[in-house]
Design a protein around this nucleic acid. Structure first.
Length: 299
DNA sequence: ATCGGGATTGCCT
DNA sequence: GGCAATCCCGATG
């Protein structure tokens, strides 16, 4: 991890102004009921939608918009690293986390992708929608995973882990709700270090499926001010997790995480030894869209 | 109508 | 590190 990045990590969470709006100022995490938050989908047409738009337009100037998501899947998966995912709950509470781990699912040839072979079903529809569209799907009957569609037919990026930046007490409540009573308190780094944990901690419900991360009032992505994008040496590429049954495609090193970050869900030491090997990261769409010169870099 | 599998997690040994 | 929990979705008949 570069010095620049570490520095920014240290400054995380400072000077976050809460909106001076009715019901939104000084949220009281202890009073938030996870059950209530989870109960139902928030209505984008509600009055508070306008309030949050007001907030976004006047206080936040770092929201990432349409163009950010419009890049090839692997590039986007890496570009997500270091960006901040924000969730504005119904009561105005804002939860923030820095994304530290992602996976790319290309669709088409990528057999491990839900959209492999262009398979378009009710479930995978979001993967084929415009870049920036959120794809939320249930897994193992009990959990959810959140993806964001990228450029490329059926391609999407799975968000796997985050470093909690703001609203940790609420996140802890949301995460603790389903755990055994009397279990030890979760450490901060355990709040979002896994794709389904991330959804729980940020209160991402299934009905966020097909929403637009570039324009939704309740969830969005931010670039931290004065922060440089993660450099190649800061990014570890490793095989994706949980797809062993897909043979060949399970070996593609399309999981990306910030080297040395304590919130990464699974560290892969072997992959880290092959640090910064650009050959591992080639995206078919990247190859297609450039001259091929960088293919021999660091051979 | 039924069936099999799954981009995970938490608790247990 | 093993493994149960738990149910939606899509494929099949």
């Amino acid at each position: 991890m570069s010095k620049v990045f570490r520095c920014n990590v240290m400054m995380a969470g400072r000077k976050r102004k809460m909106p001076a709006l009715k019901g939104a100022a000084t949220p009281q995490p202890a009073e938030v009921s996870p059950a209530k938050l989870n109960k139902k989908c928030e209505n984008p047409q509600s009055a508070e939608t306008e309030l949050s738009h007001h907030f976004i337009n006047n206080d936040l100037q770092h929201r990432l918009e349409e163009d950010f998501f419009k890049q090839p899947c692997i590039r986007l998966a890496k570009a997500f690293l270091g960006k901040v995912l924000v969730r504005r709950c119904a009561d105005g509470t804002e939860l923030r986390g820095r994304i530290v781990e992602t996976e790319a699912y290309l669709g088409g040839e990528d057999k491990a992708s839900h959209s492999a072979g262009g398979k378009r079903t009710e479930r995978t529809t979001a993967m084929f929608m415009k870049p920036g569209t959120i794809y939320v799907y249930p897994i193992y009957g009990i959990y959810l995973c959140m993806n964001v569609s990228s450029e490329g037919e059926g391609a999407a990026v799975l968000l796997r882990s985050m470093e909690p930046l703001q609203g940790q007490p609420v996140m802890r409540q949301l995460r603790t709700a389903r755990r055994k009573e009397g279990a030890r308190q979760l450490k901060d780094k355990e709040l979002c270090n896994g794709p389904s944990k991330l959804c729980q901690a940020l209160n991402i419900p299934r009905c966020f499926d097909r929403r637009d991360l570039a324009s939704d009032p309740d969830v969005w992505l931010e670039r931290e001010p004065d922060t440089n994008p993660a450099e190649p040496d800061d990014i570890v590429s490793a095989p994706r997790i949980g797809i062993e049954s897909h043979g060949e495609w399970a070996k593609k090193p399309w999981r990306f995480y910030l080297r040395g970050h304590h919130c990464v869900s699974v560290v892969n030491k072997e992959a880290e030894r092959q640090s910064g090997n650009v050959m591992n990261n080639l995206d078919p769409s990247d190859v297609q869209s450039d001259t091929g010169q960088h293919k021999v870099k660091r051979a």
